[in-house]
Every structure is written in C-alpha cells, then in structure tokens.
Design a protein around this nucleic acid. Structure first.
Lengths: 343, 343
DNA sequence: GCCAAAAGTATGCGCGCGTAAAAAATCATT
DNA sequence: AATGATTTTTTACGCGCGCATACTTTTGGC
C-alpha cells in the first residue's frame, strides 16, 4: 500500500490513469464500466486506498443510496435493538444507514430533522417522540423527504406507518392474566414519555370494560426516561400504602416492570404464578433484559424482526416508487405473548 | 411563515435583501455582523425558515465545529449513557456532535472511520473495539483527524487517552470482598468482546497474588455481546456442577452479573451479604440497571461524569491546539465502589 | 459636515464530487 | 479493413457553501 495521501477523486484518477468521470461512474456502479477498466481501477484502489467523500457525493446525486433512521431514545435498549436491526437490513439492501436519536428532547428532534435534510437521504425511517413532537415540522419534513413512520403513528404524516399493534399487546396480556388469576391493574406513568403508553392505557380500559371488569389504574408520578426508577419508586409507595387493588400488576412496559420487580424483591414479596407468591407482574415490549429479571418477566413482545423487516420493505418500495405512495397505509403488526415466570 | 421553499443561501440572501457573504458570516457567528443587519436576517429567517446545509458547510470550513463520537456497541446501555453524556457536553461547548457505533464489528468500525473522515470533524472521541480493531487503520485515521481515545487505550494511537482505571476497579472490589468475607473468584468470558476484560483479569490475578491468596478464575464460553445470556448460562453450569471454589463471585462486568443473578434466583440461591445468603455477587461498571437487579448489585462504577467531562475537556484543548499535542497523555480516572445489597 | 474606521457588497475561486453532451477511442462483427 | 456499437475521454457546468480580495457604503467622533 502506497503511503501517498490522496485528497480527491481527481488525484486518484490521475494516478490510476483513468479519467475522473469514469472513476465516478465506477463508484456509482462498478459494473457500469468495462471489466478491463474496472480491474485497472481496483488495482489502483489497492495501492492508494482512496475512497470518495460520501457527503460530497450525496450533495448532488439523484439517488443517494443513503437512509436515515431516527429513534426517540437510543439509551433505551428496545430502541437500540430495533435501530440496529433496521440498520443491518438497510446495509444488506445496498444502502448506507445513519442512526439518529432525539434523546427524548424536542429540540434535538428538530435538529435531527434538519441534519437529515442536509443529508439528502433516499428515504427515512422515523420513530417520532410523539406528544412532544412538533407536527408542523414533521409535516414539512415529510414533504421534502420520503419518510416511513414506525413505532409511533402520527395521523397523515409520512407515506406509511409500520409498527406494533398496541391493541394486540394489551388484549393478549389482559386476556391471559384474567384467565389465569385475578384481573390486573394497569401500572403506568401519569405523564408518560413513551407515546405508546397512551394507546396502551386506552386499550386496557376498553378491554377490561369489554370483559365486564372494573379497570384499575395505578398511575405513578415521574418525568423523563428513567423508567426503572419511576417504576421502582411508584411500586414502593404503592406497596407501603397497601393501595394495590389486586395481586396482579400489568405494567405499561418492561422497563417499569423492572423497577416494580426490584421493589417487590426489596419488600420480600415473592413474584410469580405459583402458590406462595404474593404478586404477579407482567408487562409489554420484551425488553432485551426481561429474560434476566428475577423472576424472568412474562411480557408481550414486539416482533422486532417483523417490524423492522416490514419497515425496511416499505421504505424500499417507497424509494422505488420515487418517494411517494398513492395512498398512505398503516400496518399494525401483532405482538407475541411471552410466558415466563413472573405471571 | 412563508411556504416558499428556499434551496440555498443565495436564494435566502436575495429574498432577505442581503448579500450572500454577509449571510454566510452571520451563520458563522451571528455577532460578527452589525446588530441592524442581524435583525434583518433574523426576521427574514422567521419568514422563510432557511437553514444552511451542514454537510456543504463542513466541506470547506477551516474549523467545522463538529465532533465525532464513536462507541464499540451502542446497544450496551453503559456506552449509550456515556455517548449521550459526551454529546451533551459537546453541544454545550458549541459543537455539533454525531454518534457512531461499531456494533461490535470490525468492518463497521472501519466504515465509521471512513465516514468520519468524510465529515471533516474538528475532533473525534473514539472508543475502539479493542482486540478486533485494525491498528493500522486507526493509526492512519488518527494522523488525519485529531482524536482522543476513551474507554479503551491503544498504545501510541490518538493524541491522548482518557478512561476509567481498571486497576482501580478491580483492586477496590477485591479488597472489599476479601475484607468482608471469603475471597472472590473472578467470573469472566473466556474470549471477551469487551477489551477492558483482559486488563481486569490481569489486575485480579495480581491483586490476589499481592494479598497472598490463590486466584480462582471462572472463565465461561460464549461469543459476542449477549453478555447477560453468557453470564446466565455460565452460572447455571457452574452451579449445577457445584464447581464454584468460593461463595463470592466477582464478575468482570455488570452485564455478566445480571445473568449470574438470574441464574442464582432460578436455582433458589439467596444472594447477599446477610446470614441466610448462599452467595455474594459483585461486579464492575455500574450499569444503569444495576440498581434494579434482585438484589441490587454491589459494583465498582465508572465515574461517568468525570470520564466524559475530562474527555471532552481534552478534546477541546486538542482542537484549540490545532489538532496536535506535544506529548501524548494517558489519564486513568479512579472508579467508585458502590455498595448495594448483593455483596 | 468631514474623515477614518468599521461594516457590508461584488466578484471570483475553491471544496469534492455528479452528470450531461459531444468527441474520441476501443471493441466486436462482417 | 471497414462498419457500427459500446466505452471512455473531454469539456463544461452544477450542488451548497466558505473564504479572500477589492471595493463601496455606513457609522461615529470630532
């Protein structure tokens, strides 16, 4: 490998004895040049280790072969998992992927949209913050950039939505819990950061009603994304005041449940469905660590693979269709009940 | 807000009745133009909602006001936490930050370095994969881009290193455990993905020797980053074969410990330091969820704030120095023993 | 109202690359 | 060897912006 630093395509083209436009064509699609010249470029490539500047490329390509992925909160392993899954699929489809996180802040979300615009991506898979998101910003963004929403739907925004079906989550958990024991109360944040929490609460209320049961909400205080702590504090308070209306706790999501389990353990309450257990705890999401809680957490899980594969599929369709769909579709994928030991 | 879409600075300058170079100057530093023209630009900005393309900006700025942050594995909450912490500090210092993850793969790590080069950042805070990293690639990268390593040191690479001191981690945990009960065995992966694991093993061996105690390694199989599962499986096997040489388990990191705790719970073994407890378990890192394990995990924690603040400090110094330090420094920050209930 | 300093403008070039059109070279075929 | 088809080269321009220079206008102190 030659040590000579190559600054741009011009230099590289000169050194390899080929014109710059042809080199450019090669990088756009190696098969678009004659095999003999392709060979020549590739041997030169080994000698000089040059690679084009992708941001300069994206500046004026028709199709940038770049997609953006936006999640609301990357420190949440659920989103980290899904983002990584999507990224891998995009790369497999021949695209370059860039992951952005809003970190739970609206200001950052707008900043992310801006940066995404500058990137001129072929398409974007976007999970909005939800309640905190600025709908006007989103609408404008989606007019400029072909976008598919995931995880959280926003009416009329983006070319399509793909996500898990909160209805499927909560009906399954409530049905299972009522069938096998006392009906569950619903443990949640009063003012949740996760946008899906509202839908889940709603479905819980409806489902209980449909079953002829009295809904029991346990809404705890707390702001932000420290969900384990919020769940823990809320559960400690509820346990100490003996205000739980039932022995079965259905948490809005797994991270809250992790806190609840910690509180139960601390209070010496055995959790599970056997005899000798004081409480049952279940939740939703199938967080990557839920297999390793004590006891392991019964939950209703995202079909991560299905959601991300379908999301990427729709995105590729969208890109192929030139960035617009004739009609906006919404796909709600079913969730899967995961029975473990906590309920 | 006018609906007219503005494509570039030229258009915006024309519409706001100001020359493009002046507008450019404004975006570079709003205070560098006369207050009256600043006002004019800002009112126009409200009407048209134009923002410059950052990638075009970065293309030929002297100082791009952009920093890159690279972590080996973003789905690990420890790294997610540190990355976010660093990002926030960079933004506070007036920089734009972009987070990249290698996802534990060398190919992606190289891709990330490439993309970072294209970005022309003012500086980079880089946590290498370690064993899997390509030193030659790193060396070349660091020659082109001012880089500070963190989390994991690589001899001679980058302008400086800032990270936690594995020596401090392990000596504290071993000292505490031996002082308060049986000496610990060291529970680790045989072939760890996390590069710090090797140092920790080494320090454990040395410290035990120094104390005149027989080191006891429990090295479990497993590849990749599913550390909880690897810890769980390893612990189940060790418990079933009754091969543990002591009642005190010191895990190389918290994520392994989470798996170990799950295994203990499943086997009905009470973990903690009280009477009636069969085992003590401790670890290193102070993972964000370690407060909520059952029982809560005694661990030695990163001083996240100290590491990220010192790392950013050094990076800003480096940028101010024009990208080179006279001499490469290595700073190992002490860790902090966090006593909880598991040991 | 004058003048020097400060601020703004016009102009032109550069960054690293894509892309279009026409001219030239290469290739496969007869 | 001539023909036509395919590739490559040449040339020229564009993307969205930074930056340097020379030049013009505004500002504030007298």
């Amino acid at each position: 490998m030659d040590d000579q630093k190559i600054r741009n395509m011009e230099e590289f083209a000169a050194l390899s004895g080929i014109s710059r436009p042809t080199v450019s064509k090669y990088f756009n699609d190696p098969n678009s040049v004659r095999p003999s010249t392709r060979k020549r470029i590739e041997t030169a490539l080994e000698r000089y280790d040059y690679r084009p500047n992708i941001y300069a490329m994206n500046q004026n390509r028709r199709l940038t072969k770049t997609v953006g992925i936006v999640v609301p909160y990357l420190a949440d392993p659920t989103f980290a998992e899904i983002a990584r899954n999507i990224e891998r699929r995009c790369i497999a489809a021949g695209f370059r992927a860039t992951i952005f996180s809003s970190h739970g802040e609206q200001a950052l979300e707008n900043e992310v949209l801006d940066r995404l615009r500058s990137l001129r991506p072929s398409g974007v898979l976007l999970a909005p913050l939800g309640r905190k998101s600025d709908p006007e910003q989103f609408a404008r963004f989606c007019e400029e950039v072909p976008t598919i929403l995931f995880d959280r739907n926003m009416a009329g925004i983006g070319e399509a939505f793909v996500g898990s079906d909160n209805y499927s989550f909560v009906t399954q958990s409530v049905e299972y819990l009522t069938r096998t024991g006392e009906p569950p109360c619903f443990f949640e944040m009063k003012n949740p950061s996760n946008p899906n929490a509202y839908s889940r609460r709603k479905v819980y209320l409806e489902t209980m009603e449909k079953l002829g049961l009295e809904p029991m909400l346990v809404s705890v205080d707390g702001e932000g994304w420290a969900l384990e702590e919020i769940g823990y504090e809320g559960a400690i308070r509820a346990l100490e005041s003996r205000s739980l209306p039932t022995d079965t706790i259905l948490c809005s999501n797994d991270r809250l449940a992790i806190g609840v389990l910690a509180a139960c353990y601390e209070k010496g309450l055995r959790v599970g469905r056997g005899s000798g257990c004081a409480l049952r705890v279940a939740a939703h999401d199938d967080h990557p660590f839920s297999r390793f809680t004590c006891p392991s957490l019964t939950t209703v899980g995202h079909e991560y693979d299905a959601v991300s594969s379908r999301g990427v599929e729709r995105l590729l369709d969208l890109i192929e269709s030139g960035g617009r769909f004739d009609c906006r579709t919404e796909e709600f994928l079913p969730a899967r009940l995961v029975l473990r030991l906590s309920a």
